[in-house]
Design a binder for these strands. Structure first.
Length: 283
DNA sequence: CGCATTTCCTGGAGGC
DNA sequence: TGCCTCCAGGAAATGC
C-alpha cells in the first residue's frame, strides 16, 4: 500500500529515467482511471517533455512542458513501472506512456483501481495549484494534499493538531497532513509512545515536537530502505522495498513488542486495523 | 464538529 | 485440487 515513502521511492526512480524524455505514444486502456480532463490524453501528452517528477503526499506527479501535469495516486495496488515496450503487458495495465529515444515506457497498473490518474493544467508560473484542462472536470476530484510531513514546521503541526480528534484518524486525514497511511501511522505512534486514541489537542507543544521528529525519523528511514512491501508495492525497478522487516507493530498482533516484550494488540479504529503496544503507548 | 459505517475493487489466504 | 468466504485498505459519502 503505497504511502509517502513508497511514493517518494517511486518518484526518485522515475525522475532518473524520465526527466527530459518526450512522450511519443499514449495508450489508455481504461477510461475510468483517468480524471481531471475530458481531453483525450493522446492529444494532450504527445510530444510533451517531462520536466520533473516529484511526490505530493502519496501522489507521484509528473510535470510536462506547457504546464501539463500528470498526477498518479497508487491507491492500494497501483504500480508505476518502467520497462521496455516489448515486455509482456501485465493484467490491469491501464495506461502506457511511450517515450522517444531508447525504447522505454512507463506503465500504470492497478488491479484494485483504488488509485487513478489526474490530468491538470498548472496555472503559471506558480507551484502546485492546479486546475483541470479546459475548465471541465471529469471523474474524481484530486485527492487533497495538506502539510507535507517531512517539511512541515513545528508551528504548522501545532495548528494542524489543535483539534479534539483522535490522533490516528487525524494523521490519516490527507487534507491535513498528506502522505501518512495506515502502516506508517501505527509505526510512528508506537515509536513516539503515543496511543492512537489520544486527543490531538491534548498534546503540548513539546509532545508535538517529539511527534514531528518521530514522523521525520520513521519516514526518512523507510525511504532509505526503499519503502515497505506488504503485498503489491514495488519500486519503479519492480523490486520490493525492505522496510517491512523493520515494522515494530504493524501486522504484529500477538507478537512481542521489540522494545518492551509486551504482546502487541490489534483493534479497529475508523474501520482500519490498528496495532499498538499497550505498554509503550498508554492511553 | 467528530466518528462509525458503507462503498468501491481484486487477489491472496485460509477453511473444508 | 477446487471452491468458497473473508480480508486488506484510501477516500468519499452517509447518517447519527
Amino acid at each position: 500500500m503505497p504511502e509517502l515513502p513508497e511514493a517518494e521511492t517511486i518518484a526518485r526512480g522515475l525522475a532518473d529515467q524520465l526527466v527530459e524524455r518526450t512522450v511519443h505514444s499514449v495508450e489508455l486502456n481504461r477510461q475510468d482511471v483517468l480524471h481531471g480532463s475530458p481531453v483525450v490524453p493522446c492529444a494532450v501528452l504527445r510530444s510533451r517533455t517531462i520536466t520533473s517528477v516529484n511526490r505530493v503526499g502519496k501522489q507521484v506527479r509528473l510535470r510536462l512542458s506547457g504546464g501539463v501535469c500528470l498526477s498518479f495516486h497508487l491507491g492500494m495496488s497501483g504500480r508505476l513501472i518502467i520497462c521496455k515496450p516489448t515486455e509482456p503487458i501485465a493484467p490491469h495495465t491501464h495506461l502506457r506512456l511511450g517515450f522517444e529515444g531508447n525504447g522505454t515506457e512507463l506503465r500504470f497498473c492497478d488491479p484494485r483501481r483504488f488509485g487513478g490518474v489526474w490530468i491538470m493544467q498548472e496555472r503559471n508560473p506558480g507551484p502546485v495549484e492546479a486546475g483541470p484542462l479546459n475548465r471541465t472536470w471529469i471523474g474524481r476530484r484530486l485527492p487533497p494534499a495538506g502539510l507535507d510531513p517531512l517539511t512541515a514546521t513545528l508551528d504548522e503541526l501545532v495548528v494542524a493538531l489543535g483539534r479534539s480528534r483522535r490522533l490516528k484518524p487525524l494523521l490519516l486525514d490527507q487534507s491535513i497532513i498528506a502522505g501518512l497511511g495506515n502502516i506508517y501511522c501505527d509505526e510512528i505512534l508506537h515509536r513516539a509512545g503515543v496511543h492512537p486514541l489520544t486527543r490531538a489537542n491534548r498534546l503540548d507543544r513539546k509532545q508535538v515536537g517529539h511527534l514531528r521528529r518521530t514522523i521525520r525519523h520513521v519516514l526518512t528511514e523507510a525511504i532509505a530502505a526503499g519503502g515497505s512491501s506488504i503485498s503489491d508495492y514495488r519500486t519503479s525497478d519492480n523490486t520490493p522495498g525492505a522496510y517491512q522487516t523493520r515494522h515494530r507493530v504493524y501486522g504484529r498482533e500477538g507478537k512481542s513488542c521489540r522494545r518492551c516484550r509486551t504482546t502487541i494488540q490489534r483493534f479497529v479504529l475508523g474501520g482500519r486495523s490498528t496495532f499498538v503496544c499497550p505498554q509503550c503507548q498508554l492511553p
